[in-house]
Amino acid sequence: MLVQKPFFELFFSYVMRYWPRILNLTWQHITISSIALAITLAVCIPLGIYLTKNEKLAPYVIGAANVFQTIPSLALLGFLILIFGIGNDNAICALFLYAMLPVLQNTYAGIKSVPQHLVQAARGMGMTEYQILLKVQLPIARPILIAGIRVATVWIIGTATLASAIGGGGLGRLIFSGLASIRNEVVLAGAIPATILALTADQGLKWLQEFYSPKARALRHARKTRSYDQQM
């Protein structure tokens, strides 16, 4: 008796009916991803900077991050059950380990790419080591740094869908339950928001990078002063 309705009709009716749940899961997804990203940045950027000052350690630490990145993400989640049990903590930790490499490596490479004579000149002008880092090295390394963060962000948002496989939340719930019950409209209801999230985050970071590029900043500045000059 059951007549298969057209797919899109099914999809739309599912979305119309369950949109609060989809929104809720999207929000969970964002939360998990943001926490994982925040931890990644908070750990890897300082660590990357530290490595530029202790070159001998660099190959070991970056090598370790590389190992985590190579382990299949689902398998990594499995390993972590031993430590964290099931749930979001486990997922966040796995995402962090997974996304370490691009941020760590790009921080390290970005700072190393700053020409030594600029650092020397900054020191010669009387900048403290901290000021050199903040005013010279990090701004010059920023494009490389942001490129690493973009990669990490997209990976985290994509991989966060696996969190539900070990009892975590997020849009993965819809995808996994859709797959289990062979209901493609449910799979899509999870997959589409997850994709949109990843693309938006990536574009947002790209825009941020352009906004803070020296040229764009100078242009804004010049425009501001020009209007200021006209007022005078």
């Binding site: 020409p115 600029l118 010669g124 002008m125 009387g126 920023r142």
Partner: peptide
Amino acid sequence: VKLRRNIGYVVQEVALMPHM
């Protein structure tokens, strides 16, 4: 640091900060 701020320094590579 104080010493260097009170001594002008010009280098061969010019070393103007490219982001400024």
